[in-house]
């Protein structure tokens, strides 16, 4: 029988979230779960560039516990991939307990996705459908904490129910705290809010203030694209950690203080993809596209990326058009500006 992974000050996400403000003078930096994109090479890249905690993409508990192919496709990790939180999409406590038992020995925490607005998930009662099913959320937390106590970290990642002063969300958070949740991540958007609309920091602040007596840290999620954003979000809301998803997708080095994705970050990403393997080509290309778009690489190059037909073609294309270094070569991972070939 395997037990949940042992938690130390190095890998305990709760300890990190609670102490970063004191030890580093900044909130904990967290890479959010992104459907398809938060796979191992990307997580390792984020860790390299100062991200304290990473999340896996949402793993559907129902599939994970029943289907080997789903497990192989959904979850890979290694020794450097820590602290990592496995994010789980689930609509009942039985599947949650089972997925935790199976995956818990290999990750540093579990997050229940109560924020995904994708209608296919909401129809199943997964994702942000859960924030309207408060009793089930509380039951999940109580059952998991009753079984594991502090041996396993459990987070609930939610959206807000309404803007400005979301009382229903605050009441839900209070119940989750009383049930024993370790921390809560609040995405300051409604189920129906599009990502093009700004995140509601007032709502996050309202929740942080309302939970002051509970000793449960809050992580703010939404609209973090630079270190300046991170500082602004933290100082306005008083949160303990800041989570970025789209920001890191375009610039995995953002928490290291780069306002634009440095070229070396892309070289390192290709290196991790090659070394670790397993990432489907279209995902690799999309990552490269997002990073290069963030670097403001000329449009005519961007147009070519998605038509490359293997990672070997990608490497050749990069070497043909740019001063691209492989691992072990001079300058690898060090350049900041786009090194176009003359």
């Amino acid at each position: 029988m395997l037990e949940p992974k042992r938690l130390t000050v190095e890998n305990d996400p709760l300890h990190i979230i609670k102490t970063r403000l004191q030890t580093h003078g900044r909130p904990a930096t967290i890479s959010g779960p992104m459907v398809r994109y938060s796979k191992l090479p990307f997580r390792q890249l984020c860790h390299y560039y100062n991200t304290d905690i990473t999340y896996t993409p949402m793993i559907l508990a129902r599939e994970f516990v029943r289907n080997r192919n789903a497990r192989i496709a959904d979850f890979t990790t290694n020794l450097a991939d820590s602290p990592v939180v496995a994010q789980v999409g689930v609509n009942n406590t039985t599947d949650l307990l089972r997925v935790i038992e199976m995956i818990g020995p290999f990750v540093d925490g579990i997050s229940v996705n109560c924020g995904c607005p994708i209608k296919e998930q909401v129809r199943e009662g997964i994702g942000c459908a859960l924030i309207y099913n408060e009793d089930l959320m509380v039951d999940m937390v109580k059952t998991v904490k009753c079984k594991y106590g502090s041996r396993l970290r459990l987070e609930m990642k939610i959206r807000i129910h309404e803007h400005d002063k979301p009382l229903r969300t605050l009441r839900l958070c209070e119940r989750l705290c009383d049930a024993g949740v370790d921390w809560i991540t609040v995405h300051g958007r409604l189920k129906s809010t599009r990502s093009s609309q700004p995140v509601d920091l007032n709502a996050i602040k309202y929740i942080v203030d309302g939970l002051k007596g509970k000793n449960v840290p809050i992580v703010a999620n939404g609209d973090c694209f630079t270190v300046a954003d991170m500082e602004r979000i933290q100082s306005f809301t008083g949160c303990h950690g800041v989570m970025s998803a789209r920001g890191l997708l375009s610039n995995p080095a953002l928490f290291a203080g780069y306002n634009k994705c440095p070229w070396g970050c892309l070289e390192r990403f290709v290196y991790y993809c090659v070394e670790i393997g397993g990432l489907p080509l279209q995902l690799i290309l999309h990552h490269v596209y997002c990073m290069m778009e963030n670097m403001q690489v000329m449009r005519r190059y961007l147009k070519q990326i998605m038509s490359l037909s293997s990672i070997i073609d990608l490497i050749l294309w990069l070497e043909t058009n740019f001063e691209f270094s492989r691992y072990g070569e001079e300058g690898f991972g060090a350049r900041v500006d786009v090194p176009y070939r003359k």
Partner: peptide
């Protein structure tokens, strides 16, 4: 079924999917 799946994951699959350290290839 759950116990079968769990032991398959713990005893076999996890050896592959949790050991992808740099240099594993």
């Amino acid at each position: 079924d759950y116990l079968d799946q769990r032991s398959q994951f713990w005893l076999t699959d996890s050896k592959e999917c949790t050991n992808l350290n740099m240099g594993w290839m």
